[in-house]
């Protein structure tokens, strides 16, 4: 196989695996938007805090791995519940911009609180998996990416099933469709809002552990959250399959850009290439590839 072709395959495989890890974080965003119509600009910070909790438990307090992971899950779920109760419930029925601003404020607070309360500086988040990549012909795959992709797929499939088939999932979609009518059917809308934020907590906790291992834990871990927007715009804000497809597209596009364009311009295209795509997508299909269209009957 020629070097060019194997380079291409390397970029693709890396892009797809990283893309699935973006999908996992995007799933957190989608869950909240699907159920509560709230746009969470603090998704990256959720992931960052999860990284801080896990790395803090491992490196600062010397807890075993399973305790650290459990702690991250429990604290993020609790955080989701409390946040909904204390802050977002009061914003129900207010203009969308109120929620947007509130989550932006929350993002800033979390970026401050993480380093202040848990630890400052950068800490690694070691996981007991091997470092040497698997070699598959010309392609090499780091085990952490494989693990990340696996966890992402499992959760995407799990939540996909939940929304499509389970009664609670159908109720959540009903809430997303029309809150007032859902209330009239005896659905406790506020409780489901809490559940949605808690589910986002679960996904963010796992995202934080995986991305924390890949990038190391400091405030910059929150930056992966920025990749969520092209992912969800491409896939559709409220679509779980869309989060998968969007993640894969973003992962591939940024790797291709980094591989083929960076040598000519000196680097950095990786960070904005997905946004170029996002703007193009908005111009062509504003509701994303799988997003729900507003049904207009004539």
């Amino acid at each position: 196989m020629s070097d060019d072709l194997s380079f291409f395959f390397l970029l693709m495989s890396n892009g797809l695996l990283i893309g699935l890890m973006y999908s996992l974080i995007a799933l957190g965003f989608v869950l909240v938007y699907k159920a509560t119509d709230a746009i969470n600009f603090a998704q990256g910070e959720f992931v960052m805090i999860a990284g801080f909790v896990t790395a803090g438990a491992l490196m600062v307090w010397g807890a075993p791995l399973w305790v650290a992971v459990a702690l991250a899950l429990v604290s993020l779920v609790a955080f989701g519940f409390v946040l909904e109760r204390v802050m977002l419930r009061r914003l129900i029925g207010r203009p969308v911009i109120a929620v947007v601003m509130a989550t932006i404020g929350l993002a800033a607070i979390l970026r401050g609180v993480g380093p202040f309360v848990i630890f400052s500086g950068t800490k690694p988040l070691p996981l007991p998996i091997r470092d040497e990549p698997f070699m598959l012909g010309p392609i090499f795959i780091p085990p952490i990416q494989l693990l990340g992709a696996g966890v992402s797929l499992a959760f995407l499939a799990g939540f996909g099933w939940f929304f499509l088939k389970s009664r609670k999932g159908i109720a959540m979609r009903a809430v997303a469709d029309n809150q007032q009518v859902a209330m009239a059917m005896g659905i406790d809308v506020e409780r489901y809002f809490g559940v949605a934020w808690a589910m986002t907590g679960v996904v963010s906790a796992l995202g934080g552990i995986l991305w924390g291992n890949l990038l190391g834990v400091d405030v910059n871990l929150a930056l992966v959250g920025f990749k969520v927007f092209p992912v969800v715009i491409l896939g559709g804000l409220d679509s779980i399959p869309g989060a998968i497809i969007g993640g894969l597209i973003v992962g591939v596009v940024e790797n291709i850009a980094a591989g083929y364009v960076d040598p000519y311009v000196g680097g950095g295209t990786k960070d904005f290439a997905p946004y170029v795509l996002m703007i193009l997508a908005l111009m062509i299909r504003p509701y994303g590839i799988f997003g729900k269209r507003i049904i207009e009957r004539v």
Partner: peptide
Amino acid sequence: VRRGIVQVFEGRRVFEHLTTEENLIAGAH
């Protein structure tokens, strides 16, 4: 609703993005 009183809104407010049967399942919450 649990006490047995349910309101049907004017203007046919179905859960548009759910199927007919899913609407019924949501109604049985």
